[in-house]
Amino acid sequence: MSQAKDEDTVSITVEFSGGLEMLFANERKLSLTIPVKDENGERPNIAFLVRHLCDTIMKDPRKELFVLDDTVRPGILVLINDADWELEGEDKYEIEEGDNILFVSTLHGG
């Protein structure tokens, strides 16, 4: 976290739990910097983050266990700063500096 603040990026924390970490090389917590503008010059939102995770972070080939029909797979909860993403505009939520985004799967055994 000691790196110099870059005006063109946003620093966030992304967490995986409930078994999803298995798709991300067993990393439960990632510190990411994403560009301040997406490919269309818009503020990056959750949809952008999910694409970013799929395209550049996720090494596991089973993308369909994380994303289905261009959105987070049903059964995976998304918490934005501990709040249900449905309260925050789902994948339209525009990411802010310091946000914590948690993806937690409900699909695993109990």
Binding site: S17, G18, L77, D82, D84, L102, V104, T106
Partner: peptide, 10 residues
């Protein structure tokens, strides 16, 4: 199930 996971989380 969603609330079970949220309960465990919170």
């Amino acid at each position: 199930e969603k609330e079970i996971v949220l309960y465990a989380h919170h």
